[in-house]
């Protein structure tokens, strides 16, 4: 069974792994998650705190909380049209976070 090196502290039991891709722009943070779905979006994002601390920090406000304005898309749709951080993710879903929008 392929382990997910990015999720510390998760116990990998049997086949309790779902295909779940989390990307921050071009950076693919992981493609599997140590749960069987559905899982809530928020813990999925929080799982990046230890594996990708710098990236995770850029998602947070000064108090270390995930920013309300974080542009998160599940299967291409903004989570404001789903259930926000409570959005449930299933096997095969793709979570994409836009790093920035600024350009000229």
């Amino acid at each position: 069974m392929a382990s997910n090196p990015y999720i510390d502290g998760c116990a990998f039991v049997g086949n309790r792994i779902m295909k779940l891709k989390l990307s921050w722009g071009r950076n693919i943070l992981f493609t599997e998650f140590a749960e069987v779905g559905p899982v809530r979006l928020e813990p999925v994002l929080r799982s990046a705190r230890e594996s990708h601390p710098k990236i995770y920090a850029s998602w947070c406000d000064g108090d270390g909380q995930l920013r309300n304005s974080l542009p998160v898309f599940v299967n291409g749709e903004h989570i404001r049209y789903k259930s926000g951080m409570e959005t449930e993710l299933c096997d095969g879903d793709e979570v994409y976070i836009v790093p920035l929008i600024a350009g000229g």
Partner: peptide, 18 residues
């Protein structure tokens, strides 16, 4: 992002996000 791609680096994300 700007160092690697310039402003071309935001094109996909800007379009996707609306």
């Amino acid at each position: 992002v700007f160092k690697k791609y310039g402003t071309a680096g935001i094109t996909h994300d800007a379009i996707l996000s609306g």
